[in-house]
């Protein structure tokens, strides 16, 4: 029997870096010279997924554009914790206007750069799920339909965390927030409401739409690179756990961002001009309980009398995603 030779690097591309790989094949975050666009000293909570996601995405975009980048921020946690007057954590040109108009402001910045003949300067708009899926949704849809040259990044932590954990249209069913109390026959957020903005963005048939999770760094960076290689309206929706709002341990941020994908509750895919062109295949499928039980916002589903029906409905959502986006790969 001849032994088989397999190219193999201990952790493959799952870890941030890998000393056995050539520098050019490592992630932006593994680089000692990464731009640290969102610098230390910001006031995000311990284990903030959004702070992490923002640095991942903007550092990758900085590298892709050779630092020729301007960021426009909606109101929200990200804006509040990074820029208490007069301090800033941002290490790139950055502007904040209102809660709901980040997409429109970004359109204006891009137009200004075009008029000035500075087309190498690229524009990113960013906000949380409140500023994106609710308050800023009109401006966002307008930016999409005009195909303005902006990458819009939504950091989705499934609620208005900055103002006290209120429900948004991205809050999942059964989750407890301060406006969806765990009272009555169907405690927590109701089933059948809310929206999945990546699908709506795809309906605009813009050049690029993708979803990402902070637990899948290489995938996230590849999507930012792809987005920055294109012109026109682009949308990236990043799943970022919120330890405070979800009642999760601060050290579980990445674990949750991984479990939400491995359960099928949050599909990772990319689409160009309205068609899905790539999807992440689940590596180690787990039941939704594994994800839910780490969060106090779902605590009412467990305990002495587990809400088996409700958990079953959440599992059905995961199964539907897996079917709809083909998340199991060839084995399915």
């Amino acid at each position: 029997m001849e032994p088989q030779i397999i190219k193999f690097y201990q952790t493959g591309s799952f870890a941030v870096g890998n000393r056995l790989l050539d520098d050019s094949q490592r992630s932006v975050q593994a680089d000692m010279r990464r731009s640290n666009s969102l610098n230390s000293g910001h006031r995000a909570c311990q284990g903030c997924g959004e702070a992490l996601g923002a640095r991942y995405a903007i550092d990758a975009a900085m590298q892709a554009t050779k630092n020729q980048l301007i960021a426009v921020n909606a109101t929200g946690c990200l804006e509040v914790f990074s820029t208490p007057y007069p301090e800033t954590s941002w290490q790139l040109p950055w502007i904040h206007s209102l809660f709901g108009n980040a997409a429109a402001v970004a359109t204006g910045v891009a137009a200004a750069m075009r008029v000035k003949g500075r087309e190498e300067v690229r524009v990113i708009a960013q906000g949380g799920d409140g500023g994106t899926t609710d308050i800023g949704f009109g401006c966002l849809s307008g930016m999409f339909e005009r195909n303005d040259d902006v990458l819009y990044i939504c950091y989705d932590n499934e609620g208005y965390m900055n103002t006290g954990v209120q429900r948004s249209s991205a809050t999942p069913p059964a989750a407890r927030t301060s406006t969806t109390a765990t009272l009555g026959a169907d405690p927590g957020n109701v089933f059948g409401q809310g929206k999945f903005v990546p699908a709506i963005a795809m309906a605009h048939e813009i050049p690029y739409v993708a979803t990402a999770s902070v637990a899948y760094l290489r995938d996230l960076e590849a999507k930012v690179h792809r987005a920055m290689s294109l012109r026109g309206a682009r949308y990236l929706h990043i799943f970022v756990p919120c330890p405070l709002g979800w009642g999760a341990a601060s050290e579980d941020t990445i674990r949750l961002a991984r479990l939400v994908v491995e359960t099928g509750l949050f599909p990772l895919f990319e689409a160009e001009h309205g068609e899905v062109t790539g999807r992440y295949h689940i590596r180690n499928r787990v039941p939704v309980e594994e994800y839910l039980k780490l969060q106090k916002r779902y605590a009412h589903l467990f305990g002495k009398r587990p809400a088996v029906d409700t958990i079953g409905r959440i599992q059905a959502m995961a199964d539907r995603n897996i079917r709809r986006y083909g998340l199991l790969g060839e084995e399915a």
Binding site: Q10, T11, A15, V16, G17, N18, R19, R26, S27, Q29, A30, N36, L38, N39, S40, H42, A44, G47, C48, G49, A51, L52, R55, L217, T253, I254
Partner: peptide
Amino acid sequence: FECDNCYGVCPDN
């Protein structure tokens, strides 16, 4: 073994 994970995953640099 210098996988850079701690360096990458810290939300606070």
